[in-house]
Write a protein that binds this DNA or RNA. Sequence first.
DNA 1: CATTCGCGGGG
DNA 2: GTGTACGCGAATG
Length: 748
Amino acid sequence: MANRTLTGWLLDLVARPTSVDLVFRTDDGTTHALSAPFLPSFVVAGHDVRRETVLAAARAWGCRVGRGEGIEIFSGRAMPAWRLRVPVSGLFTRTVRMAEDEFTPEALFNADISPEQQYAYATGLYPLARANVEINEDGVVQAHEILDDPWDVNAPLPELTTATLRIEGDGHPAHGRSRPLLLSYDGRSYAFEQVDGAGLLHDLSKRLREADPDLLVTEYGDDYIVPTLLELSARCGTLFSLDRTLATPAGNRVGKDPRKPIPPRSYMSYGKVVYRAATHTAFGRWHIDARNSFLFGDTGLPGLIELARLSGIPLQRLARSSPGTAISAMEVALAMSRGILVPFKKREPEDFKTGLALVETDKGGLTYLPRPGVRGNVAELDFASMYPSLMDRYNISPETINCGCCDPGQPVPGIGAHTCTRRRGIIPDTLAPILEKRRQLKARQKSADTSEGKEAFRKRQTALKWLLVVSFGFLGYRNARFGRIEAHEAVTAWGREKLLMAKEIAERDGFSFLHGLTDAIWVTRTGATETDYLALGGTITRETGMPIALEGVYDWIAFLPSKQNPAVAVPNRFVGAFRHGEVKVRGIALRRSDTPPFVAALQKRMVGTMGTADSLPALRKLRTELEAMIEDAVRELRGGRVPPEALTIARRLSKAPDQYVANSAAAAVTRELCGRGVALQPGSKIRYMLTDDGKMRGASKRAVRATALPGGRSMGFLDGSETPDLDAYETMVREAGAELLWATCVRG
DNA sequence: CATTCGCGGGG
DNA sequence: GTGTACGCGAATG
C-alpha cells in the first residue's frame, strides 16, 4: 500500500513514548489516529558549560546531543548550546531534573515545555491547524503542509458535534442528595438513574457511542461524574471510558488516553484562591468540564479554539488552564522561533532600589478620589487596552528594560528607567499581533449579520482580551518566565503619565476633571455635546499617542460615598445613566457575586427605573417611586413569597476548612458540609442561607445552612423546613436600596 | 476597636 | 503548570 495524503484539521496531540499521536479530522468527517515520530529535547547552554561534561552526561542518560548556539535573552548575544534529546518521552522530566543537578538550573533552557507543544512549535502543526499530511500504510506521518495561518481571522474550522453530560438539577452533585445523570445530544436527553452500577455504565456507554461527540461538555465531570463512574466501573467490573473509536489504516480501534489525571490542587490566581479538580481527559474526543474551566465558561469553544491555535496548547489542557498559561506559551513559542533560549526557572533578581525609589515606583495605576455627589452631563473616556498597548508602543519587556545597549534609550517617566530603542522585546512582539487581531475580531463582531456570528466573534475577541489583561500582571510576577518587576513598573509609570496628560489636556480645553481611574477619566463642561467630548477624545489620542474612546455621555452620574467615611467617595463605586437609558454601575451590591439574588434583583429593578431619568431633576423626582420599590421588596420578603434559592449567599473559600479562625457564616457552613462528607478545599465554592433556627434556641450567633451550588432551584441538603432569617434579609434589602436611593437626594 | 475574610477587575 | 496589588465593607471577637 502506498503513501496517501489526508486533508483536514489536527484536533489533538498526545505524547507517546517515542512519538506524538495526532487526532486528525479529514474533510469527509472521519476522525483518524495518526502517529508522528518525535522525541522531546531541552538545551544546556552557557559560556562556562564544558563540552566533555555535556557529552558524558548525555551518554549516561541515553540522550542524543546536537551542538549549536542559542541567544541569551537579556544580552541578545549568542552562546554555545547543546540540545539533548531524550530517548523516551516519559523520561523528559526526570532527565531535566538530573540535568538541573549536573549543570545548575541557570544552564537549562527550553526545559519545561511539554512534548506536545515542542512538537507543535517544531512542525507548525498546532491544535486545529488545517493541513495536508502524508502518511504511510501504518498511519505514520511522513510529511505535512500547513494550509492556514493562526492569525487569519477567517480561517475555516471543522464542523464539530457536541454532547453534554451532567447531573439533573443545578449545583455541585456532592453538595446534595443523589440525582440522575443526564446525557443530551441532537436535541434529546437521556436520564440514567444511579442505582444499578453495571446497568448504568452499559447504557451510558451505548448512548455515548451512538452520540459519538467530538466534544463532551460536562458539569462537574472532572470533580465528580467521571471519577464516580470510574469507581463504579472498578467496583462492578464493567468497562467505562470517555475515549473514542478512531479510524486507523489497520482498522478501527479505541485509543486509550495515556494521560494520567493531574491531581486536584488549589492555587492563587488574581488575588483569589482557585480550586482545580483532578483532570479527566479523553482520547479521540475532547472532554471539558464546564465547571472546571475558566476559559470555557467565559469564551466557549470558539475562544478555546482561538487560543489553542495561537498558543499550541492542546485544547483539553488549555480548557483547564488560565489565560496566563496561554500567553506564556505564546511568548515561549515566539522566543524559540527566534532562537532565543527560554530560561528554565526564574532567577533574575530585582535591581537594587533605595527605599525612596521603591515608594516612587511602586505606585501602580493612578487613582483619584471623586467628590461624592451627582453630576449631570458627564463624559467617560477610556484608553483602549492601555497596559498592553503601552508595552507594545514603548517596547517594554524584561530584556528591553534598562538594557545595556542604549544610553539613554527611551526614558520611562518618573522612575529613572529606560527601554531599548534598538531591539524589539519578546513581550511587545507577542502582544502586537494579538492587539491587531482583537481589533479585527471586534470589527467583525459588530458587522456580523446573525446573532450566532456575533456571538462567535465576541467569544474569540474575549479570549484575546484575557491574554492582554493577564499579560500585564504576568510581567509583575517575579517567578514568571518572562516576568520582571522593573518592566511591570515601567508599564504603570507610563500609565500614570498618560492619564495625567489626559487630565491636563481636558482641563486646558475647558473641561472639569471629575474623576480618573487607571485608564479612564470622567469630565464635564457646561453645555458640552457628544461632539465636544468626541473632539476631546481625538485631542487626547493625538497628543498622548494612545487611542482613547468615548465610553459614553452620562445624563447623570452619582459618585457614591464611602460607607466608612461618607465625606469621601470610593474610586470605583458609582451609578450613571448614559443617553438612551443604559445604566452603568460599579461597586454596588448587585455587582458582587456574594449578594443574594433577591437583593441583587431589587437593585437591578431600581437601576432600571433610574435609567429612565434623563436629567438630575428627573432623577430626584424618582425618589418616592424608588422608596416604594424597597417597601414592596420588604413586604414580599415578610410575606414569605421569596423562594429560598433567591436568598442564598455564594462564597469561595480561601483556606482549608480547619484553617478558619473567625467563626464566620462561611466557616460554619464549611463545618456543616464537612460533617456531611463533602470534601472542601481552598477555592471550593459554597452556598448558604441565613436561617432563624438559631434564634429559636436563643443563640446569639447567626444560624446558617448550606444549600447547593451554584444556586438555581436545587437546595442541596435543605428539606424545606428551614426558614430564612427575615430580619437579616430585611436589613440587607434596606441597605441595598439606600445605597442607590442616596443618588436621588444629594447635589453635586 | 482590631482582625478576619472575600470580592472586584475586563466586557 | 499558576502568576498583581490593594481598598472596601461586612462580620466577628
